[in-house]
Every structure is written in structure tokens, then in C-alpha cells.
Design a binder for these strands. Sequence first.
DNA 1: ACATAAATGTACTAACTGGTACATTGTGTG
DNA 2: CACACAATGTACCAGTTAGTACATTTATGT
Lengths: 229, 229
Amino acid sequence: MGDTSRKPANTRKAHWKQNPDGVKEDILRVATEEFAAHGLSGGRIDEIARKTEASKRMIYYYFGDKDGLYQAVLERVYSTLRENEDALKVGDLDPVAALSRLVEATFEAHANTPLFIRLVMIENIHNAAYLRRSEIIPGLNRSIIDKLDDVCRRGKDAGLFRANADPLELHWLISSSSFYNVSNKETFSTSFGDTLYTAQGQARLKQRVVDMILGLVVIGYEPPQSAAE
Amino acid sequence: MGDTSRKPANTRKAHWKQNPDGVKEDILRVATEEFAAHGLSGGRIDEIARKTEASKRMIYYYFGDKDGLYQAVLERVYSTLRENEDALKVGDLDPVAALSRLVEATFEAHANTPLFIRLVMIENIHNAAYLRRSEIIPGLNRSIIDKLDDVCRRGKDAGLFRANADPLELHWLISSSSFYNVSNKETFSTSFGDTLYTAQGQARLKQRVVDMILGLVVIGYEPPQSAAE
DNA sequence: ACATAAATGTACTAACTGGTACATTGTGTG
DNA sequence: CACACAATGTACCAGTTAGTACATTTATGT
């Protein structure tokens, strides 16, 4: 036949296999990138279709409309974030080490998933309208609070933590720096240079955030002096 | 004759006054709201024209195209933010009080300008492409760093501050919480409730951020115990 | 006053973009 | 193997939206 050798770039199969789950997953993957890059209104369905193995037709077949696709992307992102949080175990560490680890892990998790951070940014631009509409999301982020609650309890019982340490507040404080580190990287480094965004800068920032949180929570905490500075 | 009395709702004046600066300012005001609400791609030129005293024609006359308008809005926002920072004086306070004041003022300034925060969020979605392209922006945010630098110097000279306190890092740390507080309000309260976004919650958060920063910088700092908790 | 330029109004268009109608192919089931 | 239904391909459309052509009005300098 020699048919397959004609158009190496555009090898549209004359015969195709049905693969609903694969197609859905492929669409979601591409859509996540597109929406993360350009936002909801800036994201182009045609562009998603182009980058997908599937066709535009299939996007509407599985997700209804643009909003439905965005909603699915958002829910998938939050689910993934939850799974990442669940995977973290600090139960066998002493309270101070556990808290320190939680802060580091949160900072690193944010830094490692810039795409997801962008989608949360975008969702905030929409005043969390789609997140609110979601049925699977509420209570999804419970586990990180539970972990902090456990650590706080253990720390207070051991007389190591201040009595007013609050899990929810702590989560907020830890998240704020971890999130901002990714979300505002571009404007910050444009205004102030990228010294904080080199490898050393990031390591130092992470340590500062740990020091800040421990200083707030741990009674009499003394931050380790950074060597030679 | 009798022409002007026909359409009371649409009282387009048969005679108009030229007012270039007023028109420009009016367009920028409306455009700021529109882009802050819907982003660059989501913002509608027609909608801006509708809400303006001027017509769509004038938008293009003064700002060239949509990107030009957005750029002008962005630059205006950054200029305003700079002016706010410049207005803050802490030179006559002792180092600890001065730092405390700087943190509080930053936290409050962010909380009071949600529109501007949204535009910075949006600019970050665009990877600061327009901010970089701007000629008036670089070095615009210098003054807050200078203030922190001055306070750090005085604190270290007085033996009150740790030697490794760094103005740029401090600015980053203070900004992160202050910014996140506004930028992620909607998704955070959707996931975790709005206890942190009540009046008391906000007051407590602000105090926590102050405590964190002072704990990081001031040698032997002890946070004031919140009453009855 | 008058020429000239700046400022504004009105109507229009070309392209983009979300969404759909209709036809076709694969797959499981009796 | 035939039938029903799920999955996919193709072509198309209608509304939206950034941007413009052309005409008109106001201010300004001399």
C-alpha cells in the first residue's frame, strides 16, 4: 500500500479504535495545559482540539461545553493536590521535626506543580465560582488540616508549642508563602531581580519560611544561623 | 429642532466639550475595573466603551489597541502602589516598632486595594510580559526596599536584629502573606470556610504575620499572648 | 476670521470562536 | 449476523469582538 508512509506528520488513521477513557484523559491533559497557560477566557477550544489526538467534536461529547471542560480540569487538579497531601506522612516524627517537614513539603509541592498553582490563580480570578459549584471539592482539603492538628496537639502536649497555635491559621500562613513563591515569581523578579529565584535563593527562602513558622509556634525557638553570611 | 428631546435615556449631546485628559482618565478607570474583573482576554472593549462617557473610537485613539490599554492600566496601577508605599513614614519609630508598622501597613494596603491585587495576579498569568515591556516600571518599587533596608540597619546597629536579616527577603515574606490574603481569599474560604476572613479573623492573621516577621528578625522576640484564647 | 490640527461620533467589517448538524464507524449482545 | 448504541469524523454556522473608514465637530494660532 505505501499509504502509511505518505504523510508522516498527519497520520490520521483511516480506521480508529474506541478508547473513551484514553480520549477523556488526553483531552483533560491538554486542556489543563491550555487553561493554565491562558486562563478560561483565553484558552481556545480549537487549540485544545489541535493538540489532542481527539477532535473538537469529542470535547463537547464528553464535557458539554467550555465551562464543563474547565470544571473537569479544576476538579482533577484539586484531586491531585489532595492526593499529594495524603501521601505525606509525619506521624513518626517528633512535633518540631514534623512541623518543619510539613512546611518544607508544602513549599516544595507548590514549587513542583506550577501548572496547578496557575489554575488556582485563575480560579481565584473567577472568584472561585466553579470551585463552589463543584460537588466533589468541599472537604477535599481536609487532610492537611488534620495533619497540622495532630502535630499541634502533640506539640502542645509535650509542652513544646505555644497554646495559641492554630492548625487552620498555620495552614494559611504556610500556604501563603508557598503559593506566592510560585504565583508571583514573574512580577516579583521583574521588579526586584531574580536573586530569590536562583537555586540558592529558593533554598534560603524555604529555610526562612520554616524558621518563621517554627518561631511562631515553638516556644523559645532559635533559628539555625546560616553559615558564612 | 425637537431632536434633542426625543431620546431621554440616550442623551447624547449634540454639542460636546473637548476634554482629552478627562476622557483618558475615565477610560483608564473603567478599563481598570474591567480588566481586574475579567482579565485581559476576558475583558471586553465594547463593555469598557459602554461604561465610559467616551466612545470605543476614543479608546483606540488614545491607546492604540487592547494591549496598549491594558499596558496603560497596568502602569497606572504600579504607579499608584508606589505612591502608597512612598507615603509611609517609619523613620521616627524605633526599629522594632518600625518593622511592626511596615508589616501592618503592607497587610492593610493589600487588603484595601483588591482591584490592584487582581491586576497583578492577571499580569502573573501573563508571565509579567507587559510589565517587562514597560519602560516606567523597572526600579519603581525601590522605595519599600529602601525603607526595610534602613530599618534593618538601625535594628542591627542597636543590637536588636539578627545579623542575617535581609531587606529583600523580608519584603518577599511580608508581601507573600499580604498578597495571598487577598488573591486566594475565594478559593481558601471555599475550601476551609471564612473564619479567617471575618473582621476578627483578619485582625488575628495580621497579628500573626507581624509576630512571624518579628520572630524571624528580632533577637529573643516573644509574641504577645492573645487575651483569652 | 480662517486655516489647521486635535478630538469625537457613527457605522461598518473581517476574523475569530464556541458550538452544532449530520454522517459514519466501531462494539457489544441476542 | 443483525441490531442498537456508543464513539468518532467532517463540515459548517451564528454570534461575538477587536479594530477601522469616513465624516464631523471643537479648539487654537495667527
